[in-house]
């Protein structure tokens, strides 16, 4: 069952990056484009953001039930970035909902939008910081000072570059998604422009991650180089970018989304594969592993069962939800 649980953990991470990421990214896009995109963004994410957000909860539950030591240790040493992430999640969800449902449209919209945009940047940034800190290897169980124990593990260039990379990736995913949701040609052109910029930024930030890792003595680059599978995955993801652009310019809707999802799968998959089974790296070279530090088999069996049965129940529902709201734009057009 351990394998099933790890597979679900990886899938939930991927799903959260793809769907939750596109939600966050929509907020980031708003930072750079303001009012014109607001309506499209609201229509696109209002029905689905709550479902998208549950992937994060699933990750947490899998961690605390299946890998309790990992959950406990990361909660202890990464307390501060986790709290910031949470504040971001809280403010973003509420500001978005308040803006959407407030009965009176007045100045308050400005404040909701401000909080929504700010937290859309903060939350993914700290998600990246936390991911970076897990592999960076500055978590020190022997630490004595407050700084060494609770700040040094994540307050580092590598984590920050990971944060920036996460924001760029999310904005890129959102732009690709929103191109297909745009109501007018002008907005579509706008999202295409954002998608291009985000694409460039993501590739640059991705390069920076490897560079900073190298400077920090983290053999990230070498790890990817030495594994054929990871290498092929990253190269395929990069080389398929022109295909993505060709299909976007051909005004295809579904294919670019699938391709962008596939590229994300390749990058995340390569990284997970390379890391595996390390999940949390300590400063002294030891680490917490998804294999050795998993819960007892009796627990994993129940967790795996719940995940399998749960996904059989959920997937048709998710599919139906997405399908119902795909028919949306034709309906709006008919009325207008």
């Amino acid at each position: 069952m351990l394998l099933v649980v790890i597979l679900f953990l990886a899938l939930s991470l991927l799903a959260y990056v793809l769907f939750g990421g596109a939600d966050f990214g929509a907020g980031i896009i708003e930072v750079f484009s303001g009012r014109i995109t607001r309506k499209t963004i609201t229509h696109a994410i209002a029905p689905v953001w709550e479902a998208n957000h549950i992937w994060l909860i699933l990750i947490v539950v899998i961690l605390f039930m299946g890998f309790p030591l990992i959950y406990a240790q990361m909660s202890l040493y990464l307390h501060i970035p986790l709290v910031v992430l949470l504040l971001g999640v809280v403010l973003r969800g509420t500001a978005f909902t308040f803006r959407h449902y407030d009965a009176i449209q007045d100045r308050s919209q400005i404040y909701y939008s401000f909080v929504f945009k700010l937290s859309s940047l903060v939350a993914p940034f700290f998600l990246g910081v936390i991911t970076g800190a897990l592999i960076l290897g500055r978590i020190d169980q022997e630490a004595v000072t407050f700084y060494e124990a609770y700040i040094a593990p994540w307050f580092h260039g590598f984590s920050f570059v990971m944060g920036v990379f996460t924001c760029c990736l999310f904005a890129f995913l959102a732009a690709i998604y929103l191109v297909g949701e745009a109501e007018t040609q002008a907005i579509k052109a706008h999202f295409l422009r954002i998608a291009r910029n985000a694409n460039i930024a993501t590739v640059l930030a991705g390069g920076a991650v490897f560079l900073v890792a190298e400077w920090s003595g983290l053999p990230l680059g070498r790890m990817f180089w030495h594994s054929t599978a990871a290498f092929i995955a990253v190269v395929t993801a990069t080389l398929s970018l022109p295909v993505l652009w060709w299909s976007l310019l051909k005004e295809q809707v579904v294919f670019p989304r699938l391709l962008a999802g596939f590229q994300t799968l390749l990058i995340l998959g390569a990284w997970f594969w390379e890391q595996f089974p390390v999940f949390l790296q300590y400063a002294d070279g030891t680490y917490l592993s998804l294999v050795e530090h998993a819960a007892p088999e009796a627990t994993l069996r129940q967790l795996g069962l719940a995940l399998i049965v749960g996904s059989l129940l959920i997937l048709p529902g998710l599919f139906y939800l997405m399908k119902t709201f795909k028919a949306k734009r034709t309906v709006i057009k008919d009325r207008a």
Partner: peptide, 14 residues
């Protein structure tokens, strides 16, 4: 406690 009382939370996710 995670591995012991986590089960209801895993169903709660669904």
């Amino acid at each position: 406690a995670g591995p012991i009382f986590g089960m209801p939370f895993s169903w709660e996710g669904t």
